[in-house]
């Protein structure tokens, strides 16, 4: 499953970059994030709770930054599991920051998420539409947050 999109924020690129790498930012913006913890310079652990109607999942994730080119390019890979073993999730994300003039920065991202297990097998449609919601909300939150910082 590929999730991609972009948005623009009026902010200095370096400031944006720094913010993006702070666990607190992600925790605040990611809907359902219960905990985001920095293990070392490139490793983050995250616990995310999601609910679709009666179905509740709690995903424990470990993300690793695999390629960091400040302040424009970021790649991260993650792997996680639902705590009740409903599914196993892997993701690879690329984030690019680009100055588009007028003090604006365009943030574009592309995530390749793959799931196995009951969740994926049974809830492909559910998970895909949920991912879309999460993505929308995350982008919205991030934009808000950036605005408040700038």
């Amino acid at each position: 499953m590929i999730i991609e999109g972009s948005f623009t924020v009026k902010a200095p690129i370096q400031k944006l970059w720094d913010m993006l790498l702070q666990p607190e930012t992600l925790a605040a913006c990611l809907p359902g994030a219960e905990k985001i913890e920095k293990i070392d310079e490139t490793t983050y652990d995250a616990v995310m709770k999601q609910k679709v109607g009666p179905i509740k999942v709690k995903l424990a994730f470990r993300n690793k930054l695999t390629n960091i080119q400040p302040p424009t390019h970021l790649e991260l890979e993650g792997e996680g599991e639902d705590v009740t073993k409903l599914g196993h999730i892997k993701q690879k994300t690329i984030v690019d920051l680009k100055e588009v003039g007028d003090g604006q920065v365009e943030v574009s991202y592309k995530s390749d998420v793959s799931m196995v297990g009951k969740l994926a097998m049974f809830g492909d449609r559910i998970m895909k539409s949920k991912a879309k919601d999460v993505e929308k909300e995350f982008t919205k939150n991030l934009q808000e947050k950036m605005k408040s910082v700038v």
């Binding site: 499953m1 793959s114 196995v116 994926a120 097998m121 049974f122 492909d124």
Partner: peptide
């Protein structure tokens, strides 16, 4: 099959 995984391993899909 996506990412090596069968996408509809049940009789609903």
């Amino acid at each position: 099959v996506e990412d090596g995984k069968i996408m509809n391993p049940n009789l609903v899909d």
